[in-house]
């Protein structure tokens, strides 16, 4: 059974129980959730809201997309009836926050990219159950860091 479109994929994930807790596998297959682009403020800082919904043990969005490298501010809501936490990638050191039931917190990250990074809730096996998400940084390296050669073909 294969999928041929985004709609098919969502339907098949749901049908096989891959997008929820304790249906197909025990947990939820990571990054099967929503994708959202961070909004950019005038000063170039990017921002986004991140939630953990009750009994989903998953991030919403599961994939955060930054249009370019730089600073990202995240407002985090734990709407779950259990305690979780978050460990985010950031230049300098990773950022950690403890999230008791029904709590709200903040994180400020710096990511240079391009590329993608993982974040998670490193308690128990939240990471395996579904609380592992990705932050994608789009864009290119600065022009001065590019090779002095003609444009090359890409995949």
């Amino acid at each position: 059974m294969t999928t041929s479109s985004a709609q098919d994929r969502a339907e098949l994930l749901h049908k096989l129980g891959l997008d929820a807790q304790n249906k197909g596998p025990i947990g939820r297959v990571i990054t099967t959730g929503n994708i959202e682009q961070a909004k950019e403020r005038e000063d170039g800082t990017m921002q986004i809201r991140l939630r953990i919904h009750p009994d989903e043990i998953a991030w919403d969005p599961a994939v955060i997309v930054m249009p370019h490298g730089g600073d990202l501010e995240i407002e985090i809501f734990n709407d779950d009836l259990n305690t979780h936490c978050a460990l985010f990638p950031s230049n300098g050191d990773r950022k950690f926050i403890w999230l008791v039931n029904h709590s709200r917190g903040r994180a400020r990250l710096n990511l240079d990219g391009p590329g993608y990074y993982w974040f998670s809730s490193p308690t128990g096996n939240d990471e395996g159950r579904g609380l592992t998400g990705a932050i994608v940084v789009l864009g290119d390296v600065p022009p001065e860091a590019r090779l002095d050669r003609p444009e090359q073909p890409r995949p």
């Binding site: 460990l87 300098g92 950022k95 950690f96 926050i97 403890w98 709200r104 917190g105 400020r108």
Partner: peptide, 12 residues
């Protein structure tokens, strides 16, 4: 119910 303030993420 007001959210509990979890503060800001700190260096690990």
């Amino acid at each position: 119910v007001e959210y509990v303030d979890a503060g800001e993420a700190i260096d690990q």
